[in-house]
């Protein structure tokens, strides 16, 4: 009894300070970038740094503002976003389809998996000359490159998820006499969904990576074009503005994907759900 009276006040008091401490510590990460920005700003205005190579934050903000004002930002952003969207659609679609087939049917797996694993060893950028030769220098080759980048993580994720479905859960479906189609819809799909979402997010990240590669190699519009343009005309502020735009769009699309799928993943018994409940 004396034990409980001793322990009780301590456990009561614990959450308060800890939570406040955590909230406060969350801001610690901002110190470094803000300090850097301020130093850069001061350094350039004091003449210690050359603004042409190290653009001060105010200059980058002005460039971004100008791009948005003139509508250029939307034109380039849309071109890039459209390429990523199409590439993601084709790459993820193929990844899901082949990953599922390969996971569910051993014969298909033996047929196609070794080839896919071998192709995976090729750095995707190495395909570029071939794609340009095949599909020309315009959209098709770019979208193909992005789709190839998206394909592999999605294929691997889906294949792994299908292979790791618990036999015991499938048996529950058999006991209740589900048809093949029903087993797919009511057991395989929900069981693989967490891994599918993870692999889609990984694929989307790679999609943004490959769109940069595709646009650097030759494009007349797109955020990657802004990068090259900035380099050619010697405007580092334009380059950094494009980099920030990539970061923003990549972050937003990833957050969108995560938010869209979160309602279907609330059942999970892991850290992602337990820390919030």
């Amino acid at each position: 009894m004396s034990d409980t009276t001793l322990v009780h006040p301590r456990t009561e008091a614990a959450p308060g300070p800890t939570r406040r401490a955590v909230a406060w510590k969350g801001w610690l990460g901002l110190i470094l970038p803000v300090m850097l920005a301020i130093l850069l700003e001061i350094g350039v205005s004091a003449g210690w740094l050359e603004g042409r190579f190290t653009p001060p934050p105010s200059k980058i903000a002005a460039t971004l503002h100008e791009l948005v004002e003139s509508g250029e930002w939307f034109r380039h952003g849309l071109a890039t976003g459209w390429r990523v969207a199409l590439g993601f659609l084709f790459g993820a679609g193929a990844g899901i389809l082949l990953g599922t087939l390969s996971g569910a049917l051993p014969l298909i797996r033996r047929l196609i998996d070794p080839t896919i694993q071998a192709l995976r060893a090729v750095p995707s950028i190495a395909w570029v000359p071939l794609f340009i030769l095949w599909f020309g220098i315009f959209e098709t080759s770019k979208i193909t490159l992005i789709a190839v980048g998206v394909f592999f993580p999605v294929y691997l994720g889906v294949l792994g998820a299908v292979l790791s479905i618990d036999r015991k859960v499938i048996e529950v479906g058999r006991v209740f006499r589900l048809s093949k189609l029903e087993t797919g819809r009511r057991i395989l799909l929900p069981a693989t969904l967490p891994a599918l979402v993870t692999s889609l997010r990984a694929g989307l990240g790679l999609g943004w990576m490959f769109v940069v590669a595709a646009e650097i190699m030759g494009a007349s519009e797109g955020l990657g074009f802004l990068l090259v343009d900035g380099q050619q005309v010697g405007r580092s502020d334009l380059i950094v503005a494009a980099i920030l735009s990539f970061a923003l769009l990549g972050f937003l699309t990833d957050a969108l994907l995560a938010a869209a799928t979160r309602p279907y993943l609330r059942w999970r018994d892991d850290l992602s759900t337990t820390e919030k409940n």
């Binding site: 015991k168 859960v169 048996e171 929900p190």
Partner: peptide, 10 residues
Amino acid sequence: FQEPRLLPWL
């Protein structure tokens, strides 16, 4: 079964 085998997503 020996384990409940409930479907965790339902």
